[in-house]
Design a protein around this nucleic acid. Structure first.
Length: 282
DNA sequence: AGCGGGACCTGTGGGC
DNA sequence: TGCCCACAGGTCCCGC
């Protein structure tokens, strides 16, 4: 599910509901949802959510609070939604069969609410971390370029190796935030064949690719992401960008640009759809 | 180094 | 209707 535009949409829809709110006693219904390196969720109690933001596909909550005890307290609560994770604030709801974690929240002068982490396929992860813990784990260094902020030189400098360009785009250590949908869409918009070796892109092609990535991600964000099946924002709403796909999920259909039949192949185990006329391998 | 395959999971849709 | 298989927005790990 969520790639960069979906996580960005979750950030925007979640922030107004939880910023300034304070954690009560969290309940972890599925222990493996919490990363082994994470602090226990009990350490969240009494901490306040200062800011909701995003790095790559990670949903980040900055925390703050008085440290009256000697207990080590997390400075971040991090969610990776993977394929089917959902974060939803609700009033007075009960967990359902897919609820993996429950975070009670309070705020002076307001009715209590609960932040639910639901995840059908259970691939999603939660991580409560201190700054030193993240550094020790090399957390920031292993994350690739932020696509909306990269320059042509940033991107070109990362396109090394003979691996297919599609594989490079999906490698989160290279560029962080692009997934299977937006990789295919960006390559089609940039007129680049997904199997073209990453290192073989000309400067012109790298430039086109950078612009295409930003254009596709920006448009998807403006349409609140793509909902193929499970994705919902923090208000439970679907995105709209799935109605604008040029190639993703359209194998065997006609290219909207040139009318030829779109090809569907596997690259790195992932379904890949492209137009062999618009995206020449050469 | 880089690839394919399998693992982790549940749910859905198509073919028969 | 029902069974079986393929496949799904992500990532990690293994062996070749």
């Amino acid at each position: 599910m969520p790639e960069l535009p979906e996580v960005e949409t979750v950030v925007r829809t979640l922030a107004p509901h939880v910023e300034g709110w304070t954690f009560g006693s969290a309940r972890l219904l599925r222990p493996s949802t919490l990363l082994p390196l994470s602090l226990p969720l009990a350490t969240l109690e009494g901490l306040t959510i200062k800011r909701v933001w995003r790095r790559a596909k990670l949903l980040m909550l900055d925390l703050s609070g008085e440290d009256s005890s000697n207990q080590i307290r997390p400075e971040f609560l991090i969610f990776h939604l993977r394929m089917t994770g959902r974060v939803t604030p609700k009033h007075g709801s009960r967990p359902d069969k897919h609820t993996r974690c429950i975070f009670p929240l309070s705020h002076p002068g307001e009715d209590d609410k609960t932040l639910f982490f639901d995840d059908i396929r259970t691939f999603g992860k939660i991580f409560a971390a201190t700054r030193p813990l993240l550094e020790k784990w090399d957390f920031w260094a292993t994350l690739g370029l932020e696509p909306l902020e990269m320059s042509i030189d940033d991107l070109a400098g990362r396109l090394i190796g003979a691996r297919p360009i599609k594989t490079a785009l999906l490698d989160q250590k290279t560029i962080a935030g692009i997934g299977n949908i937006y990789a295919d869409e960006a390559l089609h918009l940039a007129h680049i064949h997904p199997l073209k070796p990453a290192c073989s892109l000309t400067n012109k092609e790298s430039g086109r690719l950078m612009k295409a990535i930003k254009a596709i991600l920006g448009k998807a964000i403006s349409q609140c992401g793509s909902s193929i099946r499970d994705y919902r924002d923090a208000n439970g709403n679907v995105g709209a960008f799935q109605n604008s796909f040029a190639v993703y999920g359209r194998g065997g259909e006609k290219c909207r640009k040139c009318g030829s039949i779109l090809q569907k192949i596997k690259i790195g185990g992932r379904s890949t759809v492209f137009c062999e006329v618009c995206q020449k391998l050469k």
